Amino acid sequence: MSRSLARLVLPITLAVIGLAPAAAATFTLPTDGSTVVGQVLVVEPTGNNTLPDIARHYDIGYEEIARANPEQSVWTPHGAVVVPRQFILPPKPWQGVVLNIPQRRLYYFPATTKGQPPQQVITYPISIAREGWSTPLGATRIKAKFKDPAWFVPKSIRDEHLREDGVELPEYFPPGPDNPMGMLAMQTGFPGIFIHATNRPWGVGLRTSHGCLHLYPEDAAQIFPQMKVGTPVRVIDEPVLVGNDGGRWVMATFEPVDEYPDKVPLEQRVAQALSTVPLPPDEIDQERVTQLTTTPQPVPVALSASELGLDDWLSELPVEPYNFEPYGIDANNALLPRLPASEEIELP
């Protein structure tokens, strides 16, 4: 996204009250050869919670929770809701930031003692570029960090909004809760591409940007102070992931991004991924593979026919009550969500 920034330093402390905090997805990296972290949850919401409410609480994006619950109403879910909080890690190297565009997810591997491998991974859902736009693939670094950025809207984006939405954007957004850049932004070495918060958090997990990667405001507040200038960033296009979950070989698939050139057909990507799985071909459940190829599924599915299929596996998970208050439409801005007084958040 071609965006100009004004670095306006306006220290802001948000001590706000009301909601339970989102569950940041921080995991210890496996040391037994596994490449899967986290666990799938099944919850039963009460009150007026929506799928986006549940997704934000568990640090999941819109596309992830919608794909995991194809039969659920987005706005009035009832009964069991699957929370796809188990992740197949991206291909190594595990260092710095890895952004998997089709997965719509950022992985951050914090540096440890010099010369030692990372011990943790922190992962966040992201919004990716809208149709007709794309984020460059390849390696870069964090070039600069901005607190309370202002945004000078490029003419190309103003023209696009006017043409497609009939909305004339202002030429300038000052720092504040209505700024599309959010309150924290990290500039990459790719021209005009930032990893930043957003004033429309309900769009996290969708295709909403012009190349930038959008984070929930609370996720930006967590990662911003940790990520140093110079942190390596790798952007990948991996719509098919296979992983070792403690000896259980699994696969997850995501909607391919058509804007990238030389796109390999999804069927071929699946075949390439399966070639790395040390299971006899006749042991792999081809019906599950076909389903994963035709219908993206963020929940890792067991490949071996001797393991439970997705529906049976999910049916064995306990159902936990989800009693948190909805975020509400008032939370659709760049501010941090309301938290209990004991959970005060301060923007870095």
Rank of each mutant, 00 (worst) to 15 (best):
T76E: 15
T123L: 14
L89G: 14
T290A: 09
P125T: 07
P154S: 03
E238C: 08
V43T: 02
V16C: 03
P110C: 05
L29E: 06
Y58F: 09
T50I: 07
P337W: 05
T28C: 12
Q187D: 13
A24R: 00
E287L: 14
A20R: 11
E259W: 07
R338T: 11
S2W: 01
A252M: 04
Y216Q: 06
A139Y: 11
A305K: 10
V277A: 03
K92E: 07
E325F: 11
D285A: 09
P125V: 12
F324V: 10
T35E: 04
A20Y: 08
G309D: 13
T26F: 11
Y62N: 07
K147F: 14
L184T: 00
P117R: 14
H78D: 13
L303W: 15
W75K: 11
I54G: 08
E131T: 10
V37H: 08
I193D: 06
T253Y: 14
L89S: 13
N323H: 12
V97H: 04
I329G: 07
A66G: 01
A150V: 00
E320W: 06
A302K: 10
G211D: 11
V153P: 10
L317F: 06
P90R: 08
K228N: 13
D219R: 00
Q222C: 11
E64M: 06
L279G: 02
I88W: 07
A139Q: 12
A6C: 14
A129W: 00
I126P: 11
S4L: 14
P348E: 02
E346T: 04
R200A: 14
S156M: 02
T76I: 11
V42R: 15
